[in-house]
Design a protein around this nucleic acid. Structure first.
Lengths: 341, 341
DNA sequence: TTGAAAGCGCTAACAA
DNA sequence: TTGTTAGCGCTTTCAA
């Protein structure tokens, strides 16, 4: 039995079809309050027969509860953020909460715009990548009066709470491992992204440790766009021609590092003897390469999960207090491209 | 000047702060109707000073317009769907529409559940992966009375409209190219996913053409979980040991194909002389490998864009009629692993 | 256990 | 150009 109109069904339709008040229908559909089994059965039957789908818009307005979690990330175009989203999804799946995602393309103005739009849905919480936001964004986040988790990075002060790793420390530790292994002529390759603060912090931590040890980056190159693997290949070739004395290459992400590694192996160059390599992210891809690139896990899935758990805890009834800073500590995966000394 | 209460601001607050009626404030904030410049300025100033963020929940209920597009996809864990999402985002960015995404993990029951939840937000349109849905899903989609675009696949009948490629044809064409190149001892490797209908259709098209030519798949292997690149490596090794006479390996995706390729190159095997290879998807990654895997583009970005364009067109005022079936036609990229004859 | 009334914050429609 | 009224579909609150 289906209504012929195109107007979406309302509670009233179910109420009329079942001969039960709207209020009781609402109770049945939300499993709230006491409803007799007989009534419940009639209502459910009617709802199913009609094909009724509740209207969350109206429900949210009436109850002043919007079970949405706004997720603001810079990009979808490498596996980093999809993996974070997977972590968020995994946790929110078991709750009433549902993520809504917006992408900023690493542009502060766009971040401001999408955050405003997300907040106008009056979400119950926000998960947002990074600690660097415009004043306007920070003001909006504070004014929203909802749990906010800033993710990926913990080098800074959160508006509310944060989950991530210290990218500065990641850079420092990698530098220490490289120096300890005896490499001294170091080249760096990364993305041309002044607004990727996390890459910047890794680089800062990296050069800081080098400097303390009297070592300086010998050569550097940046790319944008294109296949990261291919770019890694090209840049590595160019850099090795330009600076043949280099004995280590540090890449800002695993994909370009893998490209560089494949190039060097092609050339028959001894890795890690003649030259060592390291990337960043700990991408699964590396497991399939002929030789494993040294890297450091960015803890993407775990960050997504923890962030979602914080939001869920803070919104639970009664609310659970959570830590305001969770710093995950990745360790170096030496792989086959960085001597362990 | 900031209110001290935690209660979110409403139009009424802006109205009082600016001395203008709520209705006029609403008009200003939506750039609707005629408002004097003076009034507009006062309202905007007040809204900004207060930090007012409109409530879309209330707006949507009152106007009966919800500018959300529900996007239902099976997975986020390889680059396929994030790329589709990027295409959707690119197009919707220039409209009032905003995507909300849900993931089904290739599980029909979950598809039913998330579709129901999405529809309860009363979105203005739906983009959903695949043509295979439960009766309940199809019923919901029809009853919603909104534009629905089924994406990725065009081998079947859509509820409303579809954008994608013919996976059966993709399989057939690859089989033809392989046979034409003179390969006859063919092995197949893919994911253990009975519910990935697109992979299944490619396989069916593939074997159909082989059969017509009196050729049969000699060996096959399936995997699940883990790093696809590593799995490709392992499976290829195992298969070559088991069936050393094979002269072609067809992979259901590029990542396992790339793993296989790297393995064979490691072994010093002549590709494509002794053995040919092909994958599917046209992933950017391939560009960086020492030798390019033959593949076929799945047109991911384009599918996302076209689907979003259809939704946008159908929702525009006045609505624009669109095609109900857009079949993109990928061509084979022979790369370096499939002889071109 | 059920129902009636009021109202969430906004916008459509109409009036001034 | 601005304001008033009614009501979107649901839930809260209170009464029966």
């Amino acid at each position: 039995m289906k209504l012929e109109t195109k107007r979406p069904l309302t509670l009233r339709d179910v109420s009329e079809a079942s001969g039960v008040s709207e209020m009781t229908v609402s109770r049945v559909l939300r499993n709230r309050g006491d409803v007799s089994d007989a009534t419940r059965a009639r209502v459910l039957a009617a709802a199913k027969a009609l094909g009724y789908v509740p209207n969350k818009i109206a429900g949210a307005l009436a109850s002043n509860r919007v079970n949405l979690v706004a997720v603001v990330i810079p990009s979808l175009s490498n596996m980093v953020f999809p993996e974070v989203l997977t972590g968020i999804n995994q946790v929110l799946e078991d709750t009433e909460l549902q993520p809504i995602v917006a992408v900023t393309d690493y542009m502060p103005e766009k971040e401001e715009k999408v955050l405003y739009e997300m907040l106008s849905w009056r979400p119950s919480g926000v998960i947002i990548a990074g600690l660097e936001h415009s004043d306007a964004c920070r003001a909006m986040l504070k004014a929203a009066g909802i749990p906010v988790v800033e993710i990926m990075d913990t080098d800074g002060t959160p508006v509310d709470s944060m989950v991530g790793i210290s990218h500065r420390r990641a850079g420092r530790e990698m530098a220490q491992a490289i120096l300890k292994a005896g490499y001294r002529q170091i080249g760096f390759m990364g993305t041309k992204m002044p607004l990727d603060h996390r890459a910047r912090k890794r680089f800062e931590g990296f050069t800081e440790v080098l400097a303390k040890n009297g070592v300086e980056i010998q050569d550097r190159a940046f790319y944008s766009g294109g296949s990261a693997l291919a770019k890694g290949r090209e840049m590595t070739q160019a850099m090795m021609e330009r600076s043949p004395d280099l004995d280590f290459l540090y890449y800002s992400n695993d994909m370009i590092g893998a490209g560089g590694l494949l190039f060097l192996l092609d050339q028959g160059i001894d890795v890690p003897g003649q030259i060592g390599l390291a990337g960043f992210n700990g991408v699964e891809l590396l497991q399939g390469l002929p030789c494993k690139l040294a890297t450091m896990d960015a803890c993407r899935l775990e960050i997504g999960r923890k962030a979602a758990e914080i939001i869920a805890a803070r919104l639970s009834e009664p609310p659970v207090d959570t830590e305001t800073a969770i710093t995950l500590t990745p360790t170096i995966a030496f792989g086959d491209t960085l001597r362990r000394r």
